[in-house]
Nucleic acid binder design. Structure first.
Length: 615
RNA sequence: GGACCCGUAGCUCAGCUGGAUAGAGCGUUGCCCUCCGAAGGCAAAGGUCGAAGGUUCGAAUCCUUUCGGGUCCGCCA
């Protein structure tokens, strides 16, 4: 899988030996054979369950097979010692020379160390953020954005061909409400401009012009209810006035035509998306593909999907059972067009059209997924907020139905983040002037750290220090604190220390070819073992779709490095740079350079910049 | 009523998709730090993995039941 993964290499050796020992077993008998670092380091460098896994099939007692396997493994040049243990494990102690060679492998490969062919170039579509284009990015979108972006990097490193996608919900009631709100702001801006004079006397507009032109005045004048009213629409409205003047006001000064509203809507959505992209850019998130819900509808994708499902006999008109427990007040049985989701593992069939015949959001989502499948993706991944958990099964059912089980849909659920300050949750209240938008959060952190880049890195790292589906508190003070308690700092500090040593040593070249025999201290070997585990960490994290594992690995790696550094403080012979020992110095500098490389490689996955020095 | 997520040390959380004596950080306790690479270091204590059954060589991990916390539940996106 990864050419750098010594665990995969030794596993392959183990499987080959087992196949030789047990020629009568079919090849797939060895699928569950593993080669892992043992939980207890005293057991050695690696352990395999190979004997236990195949013992039953081979009708042999596991310890006996383990003994045979151990004997053969101990003959390998990489292996210093192999011994059967426990219920049938084989523990391996590796030749130190083989371990040290991993340092050279890192330096030869650079940050590509750990790249894997696991994904085999499989096309994966990763959709994340997908916030409604009705306003700027909210802090609530932050975690999904970071998790999605890091997952994209992770999958790319593991050999998948990843497309980073954003689905724009630019159809439906939400954006219609946005259009109305924009139209209100437009009228306000228009009446304040010279162009406003010519229309100020028209019909209902006259009353509005004479009023304070507030939200309620607009609602009263045109008989609509506004859902939004954000100040962020003011510049959008001014741009509308600049482009269209008074042309968007109907002759009677009343309700604008559907065409006008559609125009306003499209304009507002475009502006909102531009703002959202800017917000995402602050976080270092850049998606490549933006799919428009409205575009899909216009392309007839919904009808296509419907026809496809209908041809498979998966659509029918029916009445759903009422939900159990407390009934909604206005519940009454109504026939709707339903998709047979229950045939694909969902609890009940799901409505595609409302009782009035119009499409549900679910139906548009079906169109979206058909569009993905048509583009040839073998795997679809979503990062969703945990409040969408109930939606997972039905979408998986749809994808199964549309692609006849050939395309897989995975959903990563991101739990809510509470922003904390001084141990208290920060209320997300606009009135209180606290964080509402992602930009607010980043700008506040930038003030604390001194730069937007540092704020971005602090947010990204911290967001990845928890499993996505676990709730987390984001402690503002902790996120920028320069202490061991802050994992982001702890890892950055390790990299900065590495760079500091290499700068002091004059940035030596050709470390990849340095002789490494001088690396004998247990702390040095422990660091090398950690580095050697990087490739398998990448693969395991990618398979599990869990980018947080990278953060934990880096924390452990940084810990190993700090331990070594601290030993050098107590024992001068363990310092990296020793003028009297040029050979040892080069070996240690190679190890330091390799450590820095792996840290950078991990930070790259997380989308965090590795710093050269701490300030 | 049902679905999904979570429950692991005092606290915040990992636990490599079923492996050996369950780990880390914080906190606590003890020792070290006038100078040398100290925005610290070393070490110890701390657990019936929410509970009860089951599956098998083997379970924190899988299954069933149950308790607690969260999210959600037809025509909202």
């Amino acid at each position: 899988m990864s050419t750098h993964d010594i665990f995969a290499a030794l596993r392959a050796r183990t499987v080959a030996i087992l196949a030789e020992l047990l020629p009568e077993l079919p090849a797939d008998s060895f699928a569950r054979v593993q080669m892992e670092p043992p939980r207890d380091a005293s057991h050695g460098d690696m352990a395999t369950n190979g004997a236990m896994v195949v013992a039953k099939l081979a009708k042999l007692p596991p310890p006996k097979l383990a003994a045979q396997l151990a004997e053969r493994l101990s003959a390998l040049p990489e292996v210093a010692e192999a011994a059967p243990a426990g219920p049938g494990f084989v523990n391996l102690r590796l030749e130190e020379g083989f371990l040290r060679a991993q340092v050279g492998a890192v330096l030869a490969a650079g940050e590509a160390f750990g790249d894997s062919t696991l994904g085999a170039g499989v096309k994966v579509d990763l959709e994340y953020v997908s916030a409604n284009p009705t306003g700027p990015m909210h802090v609530g979108h932050c975690r999904g954005a970071v998790v999605g972006d890091a997952l994209a990097n992770l999958l790319a490193k593991a050999g998948y061909a990843v497309t980073k996608e954003y689905y724009i919900n630019d159809a439906g009631a939400q954006v219609q409400a946005l259009a109305w709100a924009t139209y209100w702001r437009y009228l306000v801006a228009l009446l304040a401009s010279p162009a406003g004079a010519e229309v100020a006397g028209r019909g209902p507009l006259a009353g509005f012009a004479a009023s304070a032109r507030g939200r309620e005045d607009f609602e009263a004048a045109l008989g609509v209810t506004l859902q939004y009213g954000g100040d962020y629409l003011v510049p959008v409205a001014e741009a509308l006035v600049a482009r269209h003047g008074a042309a968007l006001v109907p002759a009677d000064g009343g309700t604008p035509t559907a065409e006008t509203l559609a125009l306003v809507q499209a304009f507002a959505v475009a502006e909102m998306m531009a703002a959202i992209r800017e917000d995402l850019a602050l976080l270092g998130v850049k998606q490549e593909v933006f799919v428009s819900e409205l575009g899909l509808i216009k392309d007839g994708k919904l009808e296509q999907a419907e026809a496809l499902l209908d041809a498979k006999g998966l659509i029918y008109t029916g009445v759903l059972e009422p939900p159990k427990g407390k009934l909604p007040d206005d519940w009454e049985p109504r026939p709707q067009q339903l998709f047979r989701a229950s045939q694909f593992g969902d609890e009940v069939d799901r409505p595609m059209r409302k009782s009035d015949g119009s499409g549900t959001y679910f139906a548009n989502d079906i169109a979206n997924h058909l569009h993905k499948i048509e583009r040839g993706f073998a795997e679809l991944i979503h990062v969703w907020g945990a409040d969408h958990a109930g939606y997972v099964k039905r979408m998986q059912a749809v994808v199964k139905a549309l692609a006849d089980g050939q395309v897989k849909l995975d959903v990563v659920l991101a739990q809510i983040v509470r922003v904390m300050r001084n141990g208290e949750p920060v209320r997300m209240s606009k009135r209180a002037g606290t964080f509402v938008t992602l930009r607010d959060l980043l700008e506040d952190l930038a003030e604390m750290t001194g730069s937007m880049a540092a704020a971005r890195d602090a947010v990204r790292f911290t967001m990845l220090t928890r499993k996505a589906d676990a709730q987390m508190d984001f402690d503002l003070d902790r996120a920028v604190e320069q202490s061991r308690e802050n994992p982001a700092f702890y890892v950055q500090y390790a990299h900065a220390r590495c760079r500091s040593v290499l700068r002091t040593a004059g940035e030596p070249a050709d470390l990849a070819s340095a002789p490494l025999e001088a690396l004998t201290d247990p702390a040095e070997l422990a660091l090398i073992r950690r580095i050697a585990a990087w490739p398998r960490t990448v693969e395991a994290a990618a398979l599990a779709r869990e980018p947080h594992r990278i953060a934990f690995f880096l924390h452990d790696l940084a810990g190993d490095f700090h331990v070594l550094w601290n030993k050098g403080r107590e024992d001068a012979t363990l310092r990296f740079i020793r003028d009297d020992e040029p050979e040892a110095t080069r070996a240690r500098l190679a190890l330091v350079a390799a450590t820095a490389t792996v840290i950078r490689s991990g930070l790259q996955v997380m989308g965090v910049e590795a710093v050269q020095e701490m300030r």
